[in-house]
Design a protein around this nucleic acid. Structure first.
Lengths: 176, 176
DNA sequence: CCCTCCATGTAAGTCGTTACATGATTGT
DNA sequence: ACAATCATGTAACGACTTACATGGAGGG
């Protein structure tokens, strides 16, 4: 259901075509809510049929520019403020950790080391992206910055946790 | 694909029936990899057909106890150590934050306050769960403790971030 | 002229959820 | 007896992915 809401949210900021929206998903939303070209086009058609968006203009190469309707704005508002987010839910790293008893402790430690390393690398990438951006005062920039900050804090947390966890496994290994 | 691996991982620890596994998903794996009864039974059938598990015994009420096969262990090992985890990926809270420009700053702050509050509540629940458990030395306990610790750190991070973010929005509101 | 980018659409298949459907065993 | 719990299965539907398919427009 959420991709439809993501599309509504982006269109609330101004009219755009499926192609334009695809670009936004590939850049800004890649790490928050990935979507494929195929899904974007089918959901735009459905939102149009449901009356939540409408075709504002048609351009060259069959381009269709969509805009949000009043009904769409109402639905977006409802979803944003009156529905409970799921939050985290389903984490394939933690699932692996939970099942790590199936391999040797030394291998488990290797897994955790790799996690620490990859979180550190990602953190560095997010930091340099943050510094390269010149954040404007427009809504998408402001709230985009908040999500980026979340990403940085998340990666820092993950790296520290993985290092701690590796030591825990090492300590356990030593007592046997 | 991962539910199949979760089932393999649990069966690597010892034989169990679909019903037994359902219990584990409802308790230990609820916040890591939720699964429904329906999905567990269909995937057990598929794993059996693929030769990764087999029926070890049949009991009363049609109970089937499954056990992992050597092929299953090999597949589990491969998935655990040689495939790249996806990690975070898709967060409906962050998606909402990214789109928060569609509502009034005061409403956005309310959203963030609610996030902070709910993360704090969840953190408290995890803490008391942790204290109520007497963690044994068996593999599932050891690695289960590591995932719980992750949950605590995650909730603490989320609460702090949400409080920080609310202030950022407030500061922005003041400059207009 | 050709390559790149713009631009949209559909089909097949997997994964997951909700709901329906059934029945045996055990403890009180 | 009857309620709770044990125990499994299937059907329909929604969300998402991968792959296929097509064609126009603009720049060098």
């Amino acid at each position: 259901m959420s991709l439809r809401h993501a599309l509504l949210g982006l269109l609330a900021d101004g009219p755009a075509s499926g192609y334009d929206l695809l670009g936004t998903f590939r850049t800004s939303l890649e790490n928050v809510w990935p979507a494929t070209q195929s899904q974007i086009y089918t959901d735009l058609t459905k939102l149009d049929a449901a009356g939540l968006i409408r075709i504002a203009a048609e351009g060259p190469r069959g381009r269709k520019t969509y805009e949000i309707t009043d009904e769409g704005r109402a639905e977006l508002r409802h979803w944003l403020l009156e529905t409970a987010p799921e939050g985290y839910r389903r984490n394939d790293i933690l699932l692996r950790v939970f099942l790590l008893g199936a391999v040797e402790p030394e291998e488990a430690r290797g897994f955790l080391r790799t996690r620490a390393h990859s979180a550190t690398t990602r953190l560095a990438a997010l930091r340099s992206f943050d510094e390269s951006m010149d954040w404007g005062g427009d809504p998408l920039s402001v709230y985009g910055r908040l999500t980026l900050e979340w990403g940085k804090r998340f990666m820092a947390m993950q790296a520290e946790w993985a290092e701690w966890a590796e030591k825990e496994v090492a300590a356990l290994e030593a007592t046997r």
